[in-house]
């Protein structure tokens, strides 16, 4: 029985999470569950508590109210929003992958390859471009063979095509590792294309469900305003691409996984 229930048990279950800072409620009664293998995206405007919720989930922040239950022995891969490496710290991409545990060269090379940056092992972290840097963070996160990969606004600082490529990379990683993915973003259209479930957050959970359900929800439209019309169209377009292999669309070239262009 424990085996069965272990299989069924969510990777992370958070209930009734409340976080208050300096008298302001940042999160109120937020509940979230992540099951094995699913892709969940949290969307919300700036200051809606997205990063705070992630920090609660990974255990970096103790909520004032509520409980977080992680599956025992849960392996987390975490890609932070940004990593400010002080210029005084010499650190190659290869050495960064060794934190906190040394990994064999072959595994490190494999991870860099999976993340889409095979040739930068010897480069200094501070010299990498935004896209390369995020991919090295991704490579490090997948080295621990995570059951749950958590990405906090991982495409910040990337342009739109760069972000789209990065998300396709994550889909590929997810297929390879068969892990669950929890993403936070405000870039709705690109993110939602891959998600099984979208949670719309603004201090509390406004609405939740499949991308279709959420994008049609009044609460979502209210939160993101009229601008979502265009974004939504783009989302649908991406979404179709992700799930069928029909190549008769006039813009197939978007579908290929190999990023051949340099980021602009």
């Amino acid at each position: 029985m424990p085996g069965v229930s272990g299989q069924r048990m969510n990777l992370i279950t958070a209930r009734g999470i409340g976080v208050t800072r300096k008298g302001t409620a940042i999160l109120q009664n937020v509940g979230i569950e992540i099951a094995a293998g699913e892709i969940v995206t949290i969307v919300g405007p700036n200051g809606s508590g997205k990063s705070t919720l992630l920090r609660v989930l990974i255990g970096a922040l103790n909520p004032d109210r509520g409980t977080v239950t992680r599956r025992p022995g849960l392996r987390l891969g975490y890609v932070p929003q940004k990593l400010a490496i002080d210029a005084t710290l010499p650190l190659t991409a290869r050495r960064f992958l060794d934190l906190p545990h040394r990994v064999p060269d072959a595994e490190a090379a494999q991870a860099l390859d999976t993340a889409g940056v095979p040739d930068i092992a010897k480069r200094q972290m501070v010299d990498l471009s935004g896209g390369q840097f995020q991919r090295v963070l991704l490579a490090r996160a997948i080295l621990s063979r995570p059951q749950l990969l958590i990405l906090d606004e991982a495409t910040q600082g990337l342009d739109q095509p760069g972000a789209a490529r990065f998300y396709r990379q994550i889909e590929a990683v997810r297929r390879d590792l068969n892990c669950a993915v929890l993403m936070v973003s405000h870039e709705l259209h690109v993110v939602m294309s891959a998600s099984d479930r979208v949670i719309c957050l603004n201090g509390h959970i406004c609405c939740e469900g499949t991308p279709e359900v959420v994008s049609a929800a009044p609460a979502y439209r209210e939160l993101f305003g009229r601008g979502t019309g265009g974004a939504l169209a783009l989302y649908r377009h991406d979404h179709d691409h992700g799930h069928d292999d029909n190549h008769h669309h006039d813009d197939d070239h978007h579908d290929h996984n190999q990023p051949v262009h340099d980021h602009a």
Binding site: G59, A60, Y78, L83, L89, L99, P100
Partner: peptide, 21 residues
């Protein structure tokens, strides 16, 4: 060394790796 270095880079990254920053 490794734990200190990881915590120096980013406290949340350390937490996710099971290190208490």
């Amino acid at each position: 060394w490794s734990a200190l270095l990881t915590a120096t880079l980013n406290p949340d990254l350390a937490t996710a790796s099971g290190i208490d920053p």
